[in-house]
Structure formats: structure tokens, C-alpha cells
Design a protein around this nucleic acid. Structure first.
Lengths: 143, 143
DNA sequence: CTTGATGTAACAATTTTTGTTACATCTTTG
DNA sequence: CAAAGATGTAACAAAAATTGTTACATCAAG
């Protein structure tokens, strides 16, 4: 289906920073994170830029620069991360506007939108149940 | 985000057939449906083929051919339709496998999968609440 | 046996997502 | 105050997913 990996990558990045800081480091660079995620540093910076705007991460510039958490892992839910990356809708309506002359073509958009809104609300409620601390715990348990 | 429009189109098609039949017609052609949806008939046939495999619609071939519902609108939920179109995952994991040498890179996949499974379960529960009869009622109310 | 539709493969076009290059900018440190 | 090492971001490239189109074999009613 649609499905992009941004929530996964964003959660990965924040969790990585959290663990790294917990091990005594001040900041993590986008390059270090990118190595763990296995992608390009710019991809990480782009995501962290959004997380920063949302108040989940902070960056320091200049020499010895890098990223740090703005809040503890425990205080960040996956819903926070989800909202931060500005997700599009889970389900799309028609690409081309359906025939407005047809009763169904005319009314189906609003009808489905109402359902999709409820679905997304449920999705958010579910994401809100898990914090990054939970994620890290799960990660460490697997090791 | 990702988001494709297949669920929307499939629901549209089935609702259209349902209303058409309710108005006294035996079958609906993919061309008629495509006109309401504003797309190519083959797109409709492809989707209806899946809905047919899932036991939601039936086709008749030969002259005077077309599509009909296999069950009443009331007996088809949006979850039925969703399952029928074989949706991919809502959230994707990493495109390239993350660094397995890294604790986070190693454990994040399973950790996120667990969350995503719960999210999809919630999504399904929500879709199950609405039948195509509900959708049609909403559509007609808007007219 | 003609007609009008389905069934489906194969391909084309579009859009979305991800990756890459490049470089201006900032701040610590020597 | 210059050098070093990182962020911030635009612009472009590549890859993947989605949707649209063409083509044609097949089927069944009349």
C-alpha cells in the first residue's frame, strides 16, 4: 500500500539519540544516526528538522555540533513523533473528482471522509499508548 | 503520506452497484461504474476481480454481462472491502536493513512491528463498524 | 455467428518516496 | 581570527508505488 518509513526512521533516530545520551554523550551527529539507520545523513537531518520544530529534539551547531533530545524518551509518545513528521492521510479519496452528476459520485467523498477521520483518530489513540522509552526497552530486551 | 485510493474506489463501486440494483437493474457494467468514479473501466475490473475473489461481488459474462453484489450492502463492512483489496502495511519499516551491529538497528524492527500490528488491529476494528449500507445512507442524505 | 461485456497481461504515465550532491552557515577550539 | 566539523536546506536524481491505457483472448446470450 502506501506506507512510507518515516515514522520508523524518526523513532529509530530519537531512540538512538536517547540511548547514546544515556551512555554519557552530549550530542549525536546525523552521520552516526544515519549509520545505524543505514541511510544518508541528509535524510536524518530532514526528519530531525521536523522533530525539532515539534519540540522533540534540539540541535547544536558549530564545531562539536549534533543532536540531543528535547524531552526524555519517557515523555515522547509515538503519536508525538507521528504528528511531528506531518503525515498525510492514511487513505486517499479519488485522484480525479468523481462524477458530480451521479448521486454516489457526489456524496461518496464526504461519506468516506467521515469514516477515515474516525479511523485516523483510532490510529492516533493507539500510537499514543507507546512511548519511546517503551520502544527502547523492547529494543534492549531483544538484544 | 502513502495513501492509495483503492478502498475509496472499491467502496464507491460496490455502493454504486448496490444502488443501481435497488433501482431495478440486474447488473452494472465496469464502464458505467467507471463513469461515476471517473476513471478507466479496467481499474474498476481489476478491483472488482479482487472483490469477487473475496466473495463480495459476482460477475456475469457474455452479452448482457456485468456485475452484481454477492451480498447485500448491509452485510458488507468496510473491513470486508479492506481485506479484499489486500492492503499493504500502513507503516513501512526501513527500506534498507538497518545496521545489525547496532543494538538499536538490530532491535528496532521487531519493536516497531509490534506497535504497528496493534495499530492495524485498531484500524480494522474501526473499519468493521461501518457497512456499505451506512455509506449509502450517508451518500443519499447528502444529496 | 455476432454482439457486448468480462479477464488479464503488458506497458505507459504520474506521483510519491527516498537518496545524493552541493554549499552556505554557524560555533567551538586552537 | 582562522580552521574544523557539524547543521540547514535547496536542488536534483533515482527508485518505487500507484494509477491509467491499450490490446486482445474469452465467454454467453440472442
Amino acid at each position: 500500500m502506501s506506507a512510507n518509513s518515516r515514522l520508523t526512521i524518526a523513532a529509530h533516530a530519537l531512540t538512538w539519540i536517547g540511548l547514546y545520551q544515556r551512555r554519557g554523550h552530549e550530542v549525536a551527529t546525523s552521520e552516526q544516526i544515519a549509520t545505524s539507520v543505514n541511510t544518508n545523513p541528509v535524510v536524518i537531518r530532514r526528519l530531525l528538522a521536523k522533530l525539532s520544530k515539534a519540540g522533540l529534539a534540539d540541535s547544536r551547531r558549530g564545531a562539536g555540533a549534533g543532536w540531543m533530545l528535547a524531552r526524555d524518551l519517557e515523555a515522547i509518545t509515538l503519536l508525538d513523533v507521528y504528528q511531528a513528521i506531518e503525515p498525510g492521510p492514511v487513505f486517499a479519496l479519488h485522484r480525479a473528482t468523481p462524477n458530480p452528476e451521479c448521486v454516489v459520485g457526489h456524496g461518496i467523498g464526504p461519506a468516506m471522509t467521515a469514516v477515515y477521520d474516525d479511523v485516523e483518530a483510532a490510529l492516533r489513540r493507539e500510537l499514543a499508548k507507546t512511548t519511546l522509552e517503551d520502544v527502547l526497552r523492547d529494543v534492549l530486551k531483544a538484544a
